[in-house]
Nucleic acid binder design. Structure first.
Lengths: 355, 355
DNA sequence: GTGAAAGCGCTAACAT
DNA sequence: ATGTTAGCGCTTTCAC
């Protein structure tokens, strides 16, 4: 007994459009080939004559055929889904990464799933495991600091889920994109020193982020090359938030002999520094130069414009997803791609105030 | 001939975990019930004895059973997918909306699909139609100005796809969330007037956004109530971007008799106003008060803090998705929910400068 | 309140 | 180079 009507047999209005969507069977029938051949065409498999291929493609277009993703997933045991896991430190950053990953996914006809994760929360590893069990993403993209979360990485390994990472610590990722943050920070420092600054403060990133160590090391490299002795009193622990930038500035600007320039490990904190400097009536850059890192949209929306290191987050998201998809689709071998940085000079940086 | 092994029969290591994921059949067997009963439990259908329900649930937990979404989708002819369409005017805004929608989706075990759309681009309606054909989302969430895109709305209607909207023009949505923007703007104006301002400029939103008319009308309401004559020379067309805020401020502050307060139709433009004012050496709020709308994170990251209308974008995203899901799941009747606004007073607003 | 069986639309394995 | 068939894991329909 047949419970459901086959449109190939009975044409019945089923959607609001008045016509049921075409299935692979319909295309196959119209093209005079088997379903398997249509399947081959749509999956770009070999062993289809060119003439057959183009005929199938034309018919499919005529019938406005769109493969049903659920059926494909079920039969092929793939989800055609990539999940992006992020712990939202800065919505500007995340949004750019999303844009890039989305770009790569759309090109590959993959779908993107988003999952905000609180990596400090208990059970965040379990939450990811559950996501994997339920949706079976073909791969994951991780942003810092999830990229370096030992427990999470081990679990992913056990689950056999591939992942690509942005700015992961070396060894924690085989796939993804990263940037030589240490060299970038050093270069920024050299530039600042060249403008006559000798007392340069630093507000670090959060301890769980690899970026903290790299940017701090770059800061020290820059000082060393200039022959400036490292002064621990000028380094404050931040945690990537605007508020921690304000706090850091408060402490550094409250010193008896305050710095003439402040290098924050990201733009949000740099914005906090500018805010606090303004509160104190300091003029930027006359009284204080401020430097950031990332070049998020924020750096152009505050006054004065923020001098920062341009990190191509959108590209990094796209590249990481591309490397992942290479492996997923078996069309190549993914790697960790180094992307270029660039000093973005804006008006928050000026010559050192003369003593 | 059997091509694939059934784990219920043969236990074979299939995943890296060493154990194949449990299927509904396994749960049914272990609980001594039929698959249909397990299905009923998982879909919260009626007609299951409480004892049976809890036994099934316990077994499922023991076996770590997670329903396979692809199989569910295929069989039920639903995608368990909601797509969010947005034309990215401000990444802060979009990110908040995403967060809210995601929240609602996760609660309902729905997946979210993102689709940035350039509504000015040719073929954007076709792009959406293709997305619908391929992924068959059970519903869409639209953000302005897509909420009021005639061609798009008509197409969705024909395709029979439900949608919920944020801040849609009345009549363009049956589902979603909105805010009385006109009243909010008027209230803001009254507050500004109470501080002695008489010449108050306005930079409008983009013409394609309903918000433009509402916020402009509120601005005029506020002036009228204060008995201040509307001066068209004080209104500049903006387009929601930081840059258009800078431009608008440039023109208004260049007037012979410049305004003492500037109300921008969103925060990004207000940040542009502050930027331009600083460029001119004006002190805020002493020389110029600046007002925004939305209360995105940006309004707290600039100096001085921006006085603005708090629009709960995250809640609006969540609520819109909830209304949509009510209809999708047939568990209720969705509507357009009015959400509250709130004046967010910060230091960019002060008493009018005495002439 | 519960179950049996058909079938959703596709791909995998095996044939030809 | 192309076709045949079983089956992916669930929900639906209908029977009990």
């Amino acid at each position: 007994m047949t419970h459901r009507l086959k449109p190939a047999v009975v044409v019945a209005p089923a959607s609001a459009d008045g016509v049921r969507a075409a299935r692979m069977e319909d295309v196959a029938a119209a093209a005079g080939v088997s379903m398997k051949t249509v399947s081959r065409v749509f999956n770009r498999e070999p062993n289809v004559r060119e003439a057959t291929r183009s005929r199938v493609e034309q018919i499919a277009r005529q019938l406005n055929y769109q493969p049903n993703t659920s059926a494909r997933s079920l039969a092929a045991n793939r989800s055609y889904l990539v999940a992006l896991l992020y712990d939202n430190p800065s919505s500007n950053y995340v949004m750019e990464v999303i844009d890039g990953v989305l770009d790569a996914c759309r090109n590959a006809h993959y779908n993107l799933m988003l999952r905000p994760i609180d990596y400090t929360g208990a059970g965040h590893v379990e939450a990811v495991a559950e996501l994997v069990a339920q949706y079976r993403p073909d791969g994951l993209v991780l942003t810092p600091p999830l990229t370096d979360d030992r427990a999470l990485l081990e679990r992913l390994q056990r689950l056999g889920v591939r992942h690509a990472s942005l700015s992961a610590r070396p060894g924690n990722a085989q796939l993804g994109a990263s940037l030589n943050e240490r060299r970038a920070a050093a270069e920024m420092l050299e530039h600042v020193v060249a403008l006559g600054h000798r007392r340069i403060g630093h507000i670090t990133g959060h301890r769980d982020h690899g970026a903290r160590a790299w940017r701090l090391a770059g800061y020290r490299d820059g000082l060393r090359r200039a022959g400036i002795e490292f002064d621990p009193a000028l380094v404050i622990e931040g945690e990537h938030t605007f508020h921690s930038g304000v706090e850091g500035a408060r402490r550094l600007l409250g010193l008896a002999d305050p710095p003439t320039a402040l290098f924050a490990a990201n733009d949000d904190m740099a914005a906090g520094v500018i805010y606090e400097a303004c509160e104190r009536g300091l003029r930027i850059p006359d009284d204080l130069s401020v430097l950031g890192f990332d070049d998020t949209p924020l750096s152009q929306q505050i006054w004065p414009g923020l001098t920062t290191v341009r990190q191509p987050s959108r590209d990094m998201g796209r590249i990481a997803a591309e490397q992942l998809l290479l492996e997923i689709r078996g069309t190549g071998t993914g790697q960790v791609v180094q992307v270029p940085y660039q000093l973005q000079l804006r008006r928050s940086l000026g010559p050192a105030r003369q003593p």
